[in-house]
Design a protein around this nucleic acid. Structure first.
Lengths: 177, 177
DNA sequence: ACATGGTATTTTAAGCTTAAAATAACGGGT
DNA sequence: ACCCGTTATTTTAAGCTTAAAATACCATGT
């Protein structure tokens, strides 16, 4: 059990931002900074391990993950939407993954504007190994947190995500349709 | 109140990754993906508004925030540690902020290796305006979430952050000292 | 004085990221 | 057949990010 008083280093990171102000207010800001510092902290480690163990980057892993779920492949546009990056971004990512032999690109017949990307057998195998390791790393990094806490956090952040999604106008703004 | 069944668009984003597998397992992975999708979603909007309203970037805002708390300025090394980015990164960021007149850099006398950065009066004023807007944007984006939920999420994520920090070996690894 | 090991910052090379502009192709109307 | 608005992708320009190498300086021992 961790004793706060023993932490000779207070959160000397991004979260320091909130500090000076009268505490108690700014719940949104504090939560935002905490999410940012966690994603930076964990993200940096995940990136490091992906690089060392698989010579890959996190965005590349994200793209492979989306393609792994769609054996028939995905249009680059759909891929960019799912990976939450711009079309322009996907172009370069897909190029490098193709150069590495993990992904194939082909025009869609019937609409020559469209490019469909799908995993090669090598890509599928490689992603499988990466996903297994990736999941283990997360279990390791969050190892001190019991599952009930993780489930609760997931649920509460669900409300945060829903709020942000709503405020940002779900790209397609139909109430229910 | 949001009804899950009404969501005609299932989470067709990063979180789709977890889906295929048997649900119930992988609490760590699910929470991780949720944090990533929220930080991407909200982060993209924050970046957009910083660009449109202040012609600034989020990393620049982060740096200004750290400097605003230290009127005497900070060494670039300390700045990079607090902003959770590499030294190399801070070099360029500080250059651009200096070019914009928001930051000054000066060698530390007594140790000519060290560069200290601090806000200019313009930088201080500009950051004040940005911070005020920034806080409002977060309140807006998380507006549908009541404060108790935010506080709970903050607390639970505190456990997650503590776990990750511990596993990553707090740069200074003394047990208690 | 001088070598030597360590520290602070910058440079370099590669890749990620985005907005905005450019390119290419589709499809409906005339 | 041709125009024209729309859609899918790529290119471009600017900035962010990191690891690794380079530079500059400090500090200690000899």
């Amino acid at each position: 059990m961790i004793d706060d008083r023993a932490a000779a280093t207070p959160p000397e990171d991004l979260e320091i931002l909130v500090h000076g102000e009268r505490r108690g207010r700014k719940a949104q800001l504090r939560l935002w900074l905490r999410m940012l510092s966690i994603t930076k902290l964990v993200g940096q480690e995940i990136r490091r391990r992906l690089r060392v163990e698989f010579d890959a980057t996190l965005p590349q892993f994200d793209l492979l993950a989306q393609l792994d779920r769609e054996p028939a492949g995905l249009r680059l546009g759909d891929l960019s939407r799912r990976a939450m990056v711009t079309n322009a971004n996907v172009t370069g990512l897909a190029e490098r993954l193709e150069a590495d032999g993990l992904v194939e690109r082909a025009p869609l017949d019937g609409d020559r504007r469209v490019v469909v990307a799908r995993l090669t057998p090598l890509g599928r195998a490689r992603f499988g190994a990466m996903a297994k390791a990736h999941e283990g790393w997360l279990r390791e990094l969050m190892g001190d947190v019991d599952e009930a806490t993780l489930d609760d956090a997931l649920r509460l952040l669900g409300a945060v995500k829903a709020s942000a999604t709503r405020k940002l106008g779900p790209p397609d703004g139909r109430p229910d349709a």
